[in-house]
Amino acid sequence: MNTRDSILARVREALRGSTGHSARHGEPQGDLSSHSIPEEELLRRSVAEADTAESEVHATDGSIGVRRVLPKVPDDFAGQVALFAERCDSLKTEFLPCADDAAVSAQLKLLSDREGWESVAFPASSEIGALLANLSIAKLEVSRSTVKTDLEKVSAGITGCDALIAQTGSVLLTAISGGGRALSVLPGHHVVIASASQLVSDLPAAFELLERKYAPNFPSFMTFITGPSRTGDIERVLVLGAHGPRKLTVVLIGGEGGGKVIGEK
């Protein structure tokens, strides 16, 4: 029997019940209230105890049930933008709403000057290049032939995304929208360009979006980015930029339902 079959056989054997510790070793002395209950019953109880109603519906009620327990999110766009901004604030993400493309270009120029960028990287043949037209610094268009040590040296990586999540202040991106796996994590500053229409209310909505957009052919890599990289491993003191970017900036284009979507085919 190969290892796969032997593990699966043990799993099935274990689930058939009746091999619990009390059964294997005979009736123990003393009363722990549960040892005399048949294993079948115990099994049922351990599930039931979790909350019968809940466990029966959770498989079918999908996002509705989860939404009842997760942190509350306003229904309207303005409220969601405000919540996203508030989350960014406490996460130390810089959040820059912009009216249109021209405003984005101007913001990126300001950012570049303020941070003293020497170079930027962005996905090849994306609309991001056009937004960077007025930046007169080195530009690396990331493609299959990009060398990772070069990417490591750039001042900032600029990417699109799949969604922004108001509930958590997160950016959802994939190997497709994020220009691969490395661009959004290797450079010291990550700038995300999102359109207002990409803002979703909460985590269940973000997963629904992923399913709708990609299933069954999901990108090999998808990540929820919630603030710049951080650690508390030394005396639990918060330090930003442990291994990933020290800075995270989210640029939002347009008002409700509007804006340009970057990184979409």
Binding site: R144, I176, G180, R181, F218, S220, I225, T226
Partner: peptide, 24 residues
């Protein structure tokens, strides 16, 4: 785990890089 609402990175990996992806 840490008292955060969501940790900084929650990543899903479902295989090696695919044909249309540029790295991984």
């Amino acid at each position: 785990g840490t008292g955060q609402q969501l940790t900084c990175y929650n990543s899903l990996v479902g295989g090696p890089r695919s044909l249309e992806e540029i790295d991984g």
